[in-house]
Design a binder for these strands. Sequence first.
DNA 1: CTGGCGAATGTAATCGTTTACACAAGGGCC
DNA 2: GGCCCTTGTGTAAACGATTACATTCGCCAG
Lengths: 338, 338
Amino acid sequence: MVTIKDVAREAGVSVATVSRVLNGSGPVSAQTGERIREVAGRLRYVPHGGARSLITRKTHTLGVLLPDLYGEFFSEVIRGMDDTAQRQGFHLLISRAHADKHGIETAMRAMRGRVDGVVAMSPDLDAESLLNVPSMLPVVVLCSAPRGDSADCLTIDNYAGSKAMVGHLISLGHKRIAIITGAARNYDAAERMRGYRSALRQAAIAADGALAVQGGFTESGGYAAALQLLAVTPRPTAIFAANDSMAIGALSALRESGVRVPEDMAIAGFDDIPLARYMDPPLSTVRVPTYELGARAVEILLHGIRNQNHHARHRERVSTELVVRRSCGAVPGRSPQR
Amino acid sequence: MVTIKDVAREAGVSVATVSRVLNGSGPVSAQTGERIREVAGRLRYVPHGGARSLITRKTHTLGVLLPDLYGEFFSEVIRGMDDTAQRQGFHLLISRAHADKHGIETAMRAMRGRVDGVVAMSPDLDAESLLNVPSMLPVVVLCSAPRGDSADCLTIDNYAGSKAMVGHLISLGHKRIAIITGAARNYDAAERMRGYRSALRQAAIAADGALAVQGGFTESGGYAAALQLLAVTPRPTAIFAANDSMAIGALSALRESGVRVPEDMAIAGFDDIPLARYMDPPLSTVRVPTYELGARAVEILLHGIRNQNHHARHRERVSTELVVRRSCGAVPGRSPQR
DNA sequence: CTGGCGAATGTAATCGTTTACACAAGGGCC
DNA sequence: GGCCCTTGTGTAAACGATTACATTCGCCAG
């Protein structure tokens, strides 16, 4: 590998001059600059990022800690992060960590000296340990219960979104509304459940334990949960799935059981993944600005980095939007397929 | 930030001893070791990864160059990569690059000194420039036309998969088979097209230019393409979409046009994304082992790294599998929804 | 008693950069 | 001519680790 020394020797100057030319710092004669640039090009010199960041104390890299990379949701979040980071000259060091204390600590250790800051997504309710990791690094905590004030914090307004959707179902006349919940001990899942309960309470509808089934955020989980809900008597008239994947699985289960949607059963999801509108019937859902979530997280992190973490802590919540399509029965639209 | 020097001073030893204790290299008395470990813990010392990799010449990080992060496909590839990398103690530095020469070069420069090797996904047919980047780094090229022998190379067997699916449609009696193609100048797209043509030729069916419409790999592209195909006379009896997203978009377009699937029109996709089986009707498709693709790419790369790139070049192709569900009409199954 | 060996530890070079500081040359001004 | 400023360049000290080599000490064999 060719280093700055090789370039200096070949051009007959000192390394300092080469550095000055390549970074445009300090005065260099036009002639020397030209020669050095020529030599660097000819030798195909590429600066060693690691060495450089050791002395400059900037890595221009952001660490991203994820619980699991799964489905379109994460892919969109990462896209939002990468776009924003790249626009500011930063790269992404992505690491999946087990959500437990040990996993997070290990990941954080591995990032030391490689990143300028970290976006940590840790929806696991128990994993508050994250905040105990006392690093000087700026950290943005994503989709997690906000505690402590050592880190910035960005969440989705799950509660309001969930409440709005269930409220909408109630306004359509539904009284027995089931919920397919997300992963256990997941913050987003818990908040969506809270919104569901709150909407019911507000309409003076008594909660029925049999109408809450866990689906674990996966298609197959939603499928199984829907089958289970069909067996409940009296049967619910609407199912609110805590994400679109589960709603799609449920849709498929109902179809196979000969239950018409929305005539016999209303269905709604959460997230508004791109595929939602292409379902049959198109899926009513709560839009989560996933891309913007990632983008915003990086913006907040970069702000923290620029201020060397000496800034007032952010505590932000991105809002959701009710998306009413045919699956919940509100929009008459075309009659369902023959 | 606390450094190794701080630990050494506090423990009353030299940095060398601290290093020896923490890495388990060289002999240290049990007593000294104990004290140093205690001090390191108390001071919450975390080694500086950048500094360490400068001298050891190992970063334990793999660069990943992607054309775009989009949809479930990439999310699965990354998952496969990260799992495999992490199991071997490596991290992932992910970067989206514009597929053009400049974008790739910039990204490669940024990776110098930060990674031990690179997996580059560059499906753009023109971007052969990648191979011209003369770095000593081991590189695995993913889903790209194999050229040159400076890099290992891993592709999907698009040709065989596509040919198998079209052959299957032909065996069902279809003669007018349309194709919704992927992005222009995309290697995978081109190969799938080649398989389609080959299958037709083998069945002595003349190709009809009007039956090939571009869909750009997106749901909306597939939707628009399907509408366009419905207007062709004589109308095709089957549509082969070059990926599942487009097939789902097409499915939705047909539904809205009152065309029954599979009775009036057979549909097939490519990729077998998780959602495919939950469509109505469940989507026939070609399974691509996406997770394994990412996993295998990292395995090959790690092999190259261990051999310091002095190994015979790999040229591997992961095979696909025909998945027949109801959308192509081969499986009678339950009669379509009333 | 001495020489050699192994264990425990310290000293200093090294990795590839950036950058503070020193230095030399040239020019303008008094 | 002496002074100061500007411009161009080099020297060497960082950055935070690892590690080859040197040193010290105790012990044991000859």
